[in-house]
Amino acid sequence: MNSSNPIPSYADVCAQRRLVLVDIENAARGATTSIDHVRALRVEISHALDLGAWDQVIVGCSHYSLVSAKLGWPEARFVVRSGPDGADLALLEELARVDTSRFAELALVSGDHFFAPAIAAAELPTTVLSHRTSLSTQLRLAANHVRLLSTRQPVAA
């Protein structure tokens, strides 16, 4: 970035911007969760990934979790699908639609093996953030970097 111009160029933004996909139900260890739990997860995920102002966060969830998730993480974009692997499918569809050339890295908050092929095929560096107990071997091996969420229990509703 040019020090005389405080507005970063498009190239500067893309060079540091990350696409962050969050399977909030995987991170929360359940389909329904409280607003406070989502807020706590947002803080933990933000610190663990050192989220910045330019990062694009997309949260996937079922319709059961949407209200709590949206109120707990209002600045994120949301994709919603219910049913078996609904949030996973919604996030994978969104990943297929996004122009990843606009990003320097792909971060995934989930441990589901369902994401392993997409992470392995990504044309940019990848980081997976997951609970140790729910991180699949396939996803661990597919990612360039792995970080772990804390093992704290959910906040009571």
Rank of each mutant, 00 (worst) to 15 (best):
R18C: 11
L92G: 01
S150W: 06
W54Q: 09
R147H: 09
C14S: 09
A11Q: 13
R152L: 15
R42S: 11
L49T: 01
L41T: 09
L51K: 05
V57G: 01
D85N: 15
N5P: 00
A48H: 02
C14H: 11
A53L: 14
T33I: 07
D12N: 02
D112G: 14
I58P: 08
D23E: 05
H145Y: 04
S3W: 05
L106R: 05
D85F: 13
R132P: 00
D50G: 04
E93W: 02
P125W: 05
L139V: 06
S4N: 12
L141G: 15
L106S: 08
Q138Y: 03
V20F: 13
S68F: 01
F103P: 05
R42E: 14
L71N: 03
L71G: 01
A31R: 12
P117M: 13
W73V: 02
V43G: 01
S110H: 03
L108P: 00
C61K: 13
V80D: 10
L141S: 12
A31Y: 02
V67F: 02
E44Q: 08
D23N: 13
W73G: 10
P84V: 04
F114A: 08
W54S: 08
A116P: 04
G52M: 12
S46I: 01
N5S: 15
L124Q: 06
A53V: 10
A143S: 12
S34E: 10
P74A: 07
A118M: 06
G111T: 12
V43F: 11
H113K: 12
R147T: 14
A15R: 10
E25M: 14
S110D: 11
A69C: 14
R81L: 02
E93A: 15
T151V: 07
S150L: 10
T32S: 13
W54N: 11
P6R: 01
V22N: 07
V38P: 05
I45M: 05
L19G: 04
V109C: 12
I7G: 06
T126M: 07
F103K: 05
L91A: 01
V57I: 15
E105C: 12
L49Y: 08
Q56S: 06
V43N: 14
Y10R: 15
T133M: 06
E25T: 09
N5F: 04
C61P: 09
L108M: 12
A90R: 09
R152V: 07
K70V: 00
P154R: 09
E44T: 10
T33L: 14
W54A: 09
A48N: 02
A87H: 03
V128K: 00
G83A: 11
A116G: 08
Q16D: 06
P6I: 02
S82G: 15
N2V: 00
N144K: 07
L106H: 05
L148N: 01
S150C: 08
I35D: 02
G60K: 07
R17I: 13
E123D: 14
A87M: 12
W54Y: 13
V79T: 14
Y10M: 08
S136Q: 05
H63F: 03
C14F: 09
N5T: 14
N5A: 09
G52Y: 03
S4H: 06
E123A: 15
D112T: 11
A15D: 10
A120T: 00
